[in-house]
Write a protein that binds this DNA or RNA. Sequence first.
DNA 1: GACAGATTACGACAGGAGTCGTAGAATCCC
DNA 2: GGGATTCTACGACTCCTGTCGTAATCTGTC
Lengths: 129, 129
Amino acid sequence: MAKPLASLGEVEVQILRLVWQNQPCTERQISDLVQQERDVARTTVLKTLQRLEAKGLLARVPDETPIRFRAVLDENRVLPSLIDRFVHGVLGGSPGPLVAYLANSEKLSEKDIKALQAIAQKIGQPAQE
Amino acid sequence: MAKPLASLGEVEVQILRLVWQNQPCTERQISDLVQQERDVARTTVLKTLQRLEAKGLLARVPDETPIRFRAVLDENRVLPSLIDRFVHGVLGGSPGPLVAYLANSEKLSEKDIKALQAIAQKIGQPAQE
DNA sequence: GACAGATTACGACAGGAGTCGTAGAATCCC
DNA sequence: GGGATTCTACGACTCCTGTCGTAATCTGTC
């Protein structure tokens, strides 16, 4: 039972991403990184870290003096859920707009394009028209 | 540049979608539709309609007795912005996870697949235009 | 004109998320 | 040991969104 996964705010997701990329990490590390992108007090970061912990998304590494956090769930588990929620809540369940979005996206990496082609290929198989 | 586009809550987006599909429409119509999906009081719907109006996303058709609302912005304008915001806020700017998501999506319509293939095709070939 | 019913506006409250200030606790360094 | 630093926990606010209740308005019908 993949627990519902509490809803996440923007800062929460940002911090969660940072933890994924740097875990296990201290509040200080995260604060420094966050502050490169937005101007917030360290207590805000800590608070967010705590909320994330309360939501079961982060955990503390035991017995470390400056507390270090690590993610409980892999991003490959969380992101899809978040996307799914977005697709259902905002797009009404249809991924169509996403496809259109990607079509106009200029930020597709080589890898993304490859993946897209693979999808098209794969799904195109049973195709008929 | 299009104005920032106020942030939207889940119910707000849902109602906005309903308006897009039925505009111009009355609060009653929307309420009936919304209530097919979630149990809310009509005043809640009206309030949401008003907030959407305050955000500049809906407008009233002039001089109609039961007020009728219509969308100020086309969904083809709003959805991409919302997706973009999501990609930046949640995915950190990379559409990669979206691609992965689509790869596992079972809900792709024929049209979506076609579009996907077109994208893959188009991008697959560097020079054009 | 008066009443019933529908429509709309107002105001209120709750919970979540972002944001901090402050202060107590733990550490470090003479 | 004691002061300087750093780390943490609390508690407090504000804003946004969801959710209504209630009251004021408007409409159509006897």
